[in-house]
Computed example of a mutant assay.
Amino acid sequence: MEFQTVEQYRALIDHSTDVIVLFDKTGVIQFASPAVETMLGYDPNELIGEQAFSLIHPDDREQAVEAFNQIVGAPSQSTKKQEHRLRHADGSWVWAESVTTNRTESDIEGFVINTREITERKRNEKQLEKRTEQLEALNRVVRHDIRNDMSVILGWGEQLQKHVTDEGQDALDRVLRKSRHVIELTEISRDFVESLVSDDTTEVKPVDLQQYIKTELAAVRESYPNAQFDVSGDISDVSVRANEMLSSVFRNLFENAVQHNNEETPVITVTYVDRDETVRVRIADNGPGIPDEQKEQIFGKGKRGLDSSGSGIGLYLVHTLTDQFGGDVWVEDNDPKGAVFIVELQKAE
């Protein structure tokens, strides 16, 4: 559809929720659209003759002027999106996002600013920044204070093994198991917080799938010598879209397969399935299996989040990370018994 009349253009401007302002080469406002009253509380005619940059907060003005100077003498060129505060008629400041375009060689004979309010977005960004700082502080406490103290407790407990009686051995074994479990939880919590606040996790890149699986299998075999870990077939040398946090995905799934297994010898089998654009890693166990009504909840999916029944924050972290990688994770029944956790990842181009 093409606009054929001045009335059509005026109707478009009048009904636009964005503020449209025209100013000349000296920065004096020649026109302001009706939306300026909704955003800033000014009657449009009230702004005519005012300096456009005088409405910008002093701390943001220099950047705006610099961007404007870059398009002076460059007809049809536009500035990049500029975020700055604009003075409201009541004296408060409103966050806005603006683009200025040089129209000096058109019939407009001036510079056009298109502006929209982003105050709510900036408020949300501020809240997110604060929460990120709080998460990072919590991460430092978990990573250093709690983990270090529990490592000391575990060390002293292990030294007591040679000195307790048979009657006390069971109690000491319980203390040692719980100590190791707390240390494990600090590692999971650390990975989870880092997945939320670290810039690295937002960058997905090609990583060697085989390397991550082999590394985590070696670690879990050492941690659980009574468990049996088998690899069915070959794990192809393929790159997938992920990052360093992929290690946490497999570590949590391997450990989960042992910890929630009631067999004397937990047997975990890892199988690789090559598809056209994705790869699937199947981690099967011979444990009690997972009821159908819990297959979604164990990952913390849906409304229940971390309060879901099942294996806790470890599987929630697995789901969060695979989702960040553009992949997926789910669980199926194993045959004749047990569960199969399936991680699907995108192949790297």
Rank of each mutant, 00 (worst) to 15 (best):
Y224E: 06
V238N: 00
F229M: 06
F254V: 09
L217M: 15
S239P: 00
V249D: 04
V238S: 01
S223A: 15
S247F: 13
F250L: 03
A218G: 04
I235A: 04
A242E: 07
L246M: 08
R251F: 05
A242L: 05
P225C: 10
V240F: 01
V231N: 02
A242Q: 05
F250C: 02
E255C: 14
P225N: 09
M245Q: 13
E244Y: 05
A219L: 14
V231C: 05
F254P: 06
V231T: 13
S236V: 07
L246K: 03
S247H: 12
D230E: 14
N226D: 09
R241S: 11
A218S: 11
L253G: 01
M245W: 10
T215P: 00
F254G: 03
N243K: 04
R221M: 15
P225W: 04
L217Q: 14
L253T: 06
M245Y: 14
F250P: 01
G233W: 07
S239Q: 13
S236P: 01
T215V: 05
L217G: 12
V220L: 03
Q228T: 11
M245S: 14
N252V: 13
E244L: 09
N226S: 09
D234L: 14
V238P: 00
L217E: 14
E222P: 01
F254S: 06
E244H: 11
E255N: 13
A218I: 08
F254I: 08
D230K: 15
F250T: 02
F254N: 05
N226W: 00
S223V: 08
V249A: 04
L217R: 10
M245P: 01
L246D: 02
F250D: 02
V240W: 00
A227C: 11
L253I: 15
F250V: 04
F254W: 05
D234E: 15
V231P: 02
Y224H: 13
Q228D: 12
R251T: 02
Q228H: 12
F229R: 07
M245N: 09
E255L: 08
E244M: 05
N226G: 01
Q228R: 15
S248C: 06
